[in-house]
Design a protein around this nucleic acid. Sequence first.
DNA 1: CTATGATGATTAAACGATTAATCAAGAATA
DNA 2: TATTCTTGATTAATCGTTTAATCATCATAG
Lengths: 325, 325
Amino acid sequence: MILVNQKQIARELGISIATVSNALTGKGRVSADVIQLVTARAEELEYFPSAAGRALKTGRSGILGLVIPDITHPVFPDFAHGVETEAEKCGYGILIADSRGTEAGQKTAIDQLIQRGVDGIIIIPTRSSNPNTSKVPTAIVSTPTDPKSNVAANHRQGGQLSAQTLFDLGHRNFLLIGEDPMSPVQNERIDGMKDILDGAAKFEIYWANEEFPDLVLKAKEGVTACLAVSDLLALRVITEAGRLGVRCPDALSVIGFDNLPLGTAVRPTLSTIMPDTTELARRAVGYLNSAIRQDSDQPSSSVVEMGIILRESTQKITQPTQQGD
Amino acid sequence: MILVNQKQIARELGISIATVSNALTGKGRVSADVIQLVTARAEELEYFPSAAGRALKTGRSGILGLVIPDITHPVFPDFAHGVETEAEKCGYGILIADSRGTEAGQKTAIDQLIQRGVDGIIIIPTRSSNPNTSKVPTAIVSTPTDPKSNVAANHRQGGQLSAQTLFDLGHRNFLLIGEDPMSPVQNERIDGMKDILDGAAKFEIYWANEEFPDLVLKAKEGVTACLAVSDLLALRVITEAGRLGVRCPDALSVIGFDNLPLGTAVRPTLSTIMPDTTELARRAVGYLNSAIRQDSDQPSSSVVEMGIILRESTQKITQPTQQGD
DNA sequence: CTATGATGATTAAACGATTAATCAAGAATA
DNA sequence: TATTCTTGATTAATCGTTTAATCATCATAG
């Protein structure tokens, strides 16, 4: 608990504080011997520069804020993890704040972060809100169709990939399942699926919040593939099918989104579409970092493509015939 | 981006900086009128005290560190969320660091946090490590059997609750499923189950990492209930059963641990055991807070009980008879 | 009328690091 | 020899806030 500061090192070595600072930061003019001496002593004493002292003088805290709607939702920790590792590479720490999905919560979260002196903020905005952040550099991670977005995953292309993959496996009769028809993300994913299927295959859309399809009936009608907008929804489809006797993936192929941990626990293991979260995080941190440094030549908006992870739940169609009884 | 500090307020009001500080913090001697004047002007200018300036002078940053093994694992975000809200109540922000499950990662994470000037650290240690944190107040969140633990969830009692609940529903032939036989947490949960079942019912233990039971065979042998040490494992049991035609919960009741989001998505919805994470977080933050303030009269270790959430996957036994063919 | 107190505000010194300005001394140049 | 350059180090100011010490003023007590 005892403090080791530059003053102490300077005193012990009989030199000035400024020289210590210069030696440690590599600025100014210091002889090689003194640098050697200072760094050695600093090492010995386990000296760490005071974050507060440095922040006060330089006006930079070395901390980024991350505002997410709900840390409990399994989509976000993955991104948070990516941001954390990317930030560390740039010498930043991250302060996480939960906006609880509300616009008021988002506002207080942002204020809190600013008050704590963060150098910049990465925001995943709550449903179509307009975070006011004139006071500090900001990177907004949203959807490609959101004009405020600085970084986004290409949900529509993800939807296309989902549909195209199953189409290529021979499926021609689809069930598209969303959860909340008001969600922009889910709509973009569904739109992407429609891009591929319109005119090329039969399909129906259900929103689980309103009505969940009767899988036995649908199987009788010839449906062989189900494209869900999330892994949680896909899980519901798989287990619902299991209890109803619709065999998966033999009778029904299923694919989700987000690559949640449950995807490898469920049987059959779940195929899924997801963005490269590391890349997403890299761009968000990179954008923010150059905004902080005021590098002007930075793209104001970028979109990262989604990829696919094929597991057991998606299969080549066996015979495009009716099943059930 | 323009700075509002005490100096500016002082200048505008024609008074000294010290008076501004005293007026805003309520210390020293300031007349009621001046306090009124200062706070009003501060409000207008949207003044926020500089975190760096204050931290430098007071030696306290108002930030707590939270070290978790893997933010991606769905168990932790729930706790992190609790810590974040509890910390906020005490006026702290939290800096999250991921130790990546390794002891080296844990060490660097802790060093990083100290370097950033946190006032204290909450650590969920990686598997039986001994975090060295002599430099800063620390709260360790581990298991009741870990002597270093300051706060813990009662995993053994959770295991008891799991077994007792199914026993009370009439089950007498159990499958206990763990994942990793080296995990202290999982062993404590299994031990709790054994506390109840030993001598009172038939049971078998499987470790999924080594061998997953043949559910059809087990059902034939009369097993009617499966106690898993985690929701992910329970999910695997439910879906594996589903594809093998072992009906759940009619033929097999299943219960897990941790109350993951997937529990309400899977069909049948999953019964689960979990600690009150809010309470867990409250105690961790409370313990740390008083350690920081050096309140000596604080219990050095406390244990929080686990509760149960009953959903569809656990049922009263219908008939304790063989099924299958 | 002077000594004492209470009140309200100011001065000035920290906290720890950074950095522009300065200075001393030896080397190179005229 | 006098002058300029270079090198290596020091001084001192600064960031924004807190806080002990000081001071002025006016009221009260002696």
